[in-house]
Design a protein around this nucleic acid. Structure first.
Lengths: 145, 145
DNA sequence: ATTTTTAGTTGATAAAAGCTACTATTCACC
DNA sequence: GGTGAATAGTAGCTTTTATCAACTAAAAAT
């Protein structure tokens, strides 16, 4: 095994361990009534207030008609509003409502709690080491783009 | 922000970066004709020759009827065979065929290539650091169970 | 011996995702 | 400035994925 092969092997082993551990494979986001896709749509708008559907579809790599339905469902639920863009009358600027923001924050809270449950028994030193390791991986992999 | 909150925040930030980077969010495993679920079923049998459906359903946390259909589809495709267990005549021991093994190995190869594409431009030092960081995270998170 | 649990299947259905075609703009560019 | 190509979004339809409830047969529990 070359060095490179070792890295690849370790990354795959890491994924097999990490994803189920963090429950990143479930079909329902944090046991909520929402799919990961629906939840991610809210997150995208939360982090990108005023974006349009095309932006989300491209970023999430999902079908635009499917996304159109998800957005409408969120709108019906009162999670978001859409205003025709002033610069492009085909597009809508999407904004979360108070209710949508509250829902998204609730997702974040539940996600935090779930992670806390995993790390709560760790010692202080582990915290620091963990952060360092996460940052290391991010920094190294960011070099590729 | 307490130390613990910082860790939680960093883990979530890491997930947002890492999952799309490694394309762990797609509905098709590595652009194949198989869903991640179908692929994982093959992997489970590959790594656990002779296991039964109940084992897989429990490990993957999926509905047993759904799994039953997936297994039958894999069987129809010639990827696996089932023998009635000698110790429990309700259960089947599942084995991959040569074809199933070849398919699984092809998944592994494609996954390796995809990861290689991400890390190929890195330097030797990065490799070592990456492996160390992956191991650190695994070791620390393994403490919880 | 009887009840309860477990392994797996089937049928029906719901939910998620995708494809094609369409309207209405906007953009490119001659 | 007019024409064709590209883009934003929606609608209809279909396929795929996932779930639920009911069932058989065998094993385990009491």
């Amino acid at each position: 095994m070359t060095e490179k092969e070792k890295v690849i092997y370790r990354i795959r082993a890491f994924n097999r361990f990490y994803m189920p551990k963090l429950r990143l494979l479930d079909n329902h986001y944090l046991d909520s009534e929402y799919t990961p896709t629906e939840a991610r749509v809210l997150f995208e708008i939360y982090e990108n207030d005023g974006c349009n559907a095309a932006y989300i579809a491209k970023k999430m790599n999902i079908d635009k008609s499917y996304l159109s339905r998800i957005i409408r469902a969120h709108e019906t639920k009162g999670y978001l509003v859409r205003n025709v863009s002033e610069t492009d009358s085909r597009a809508y600027q999407i904004h979360l409502t108070e209710k949508g923001i509250a829902q998204t924050k609730d997702f974040i809270k539940k996600s935090n709690q779930q992670i806390e449950n995993i790390i709560k028994s760790l010692r202080k030193e582990d915290y620091a080491e963990l952060i360092k390791a996460l940052n290391t991986i991010t920094e190294i992999l960011e070099k590729h783009d």
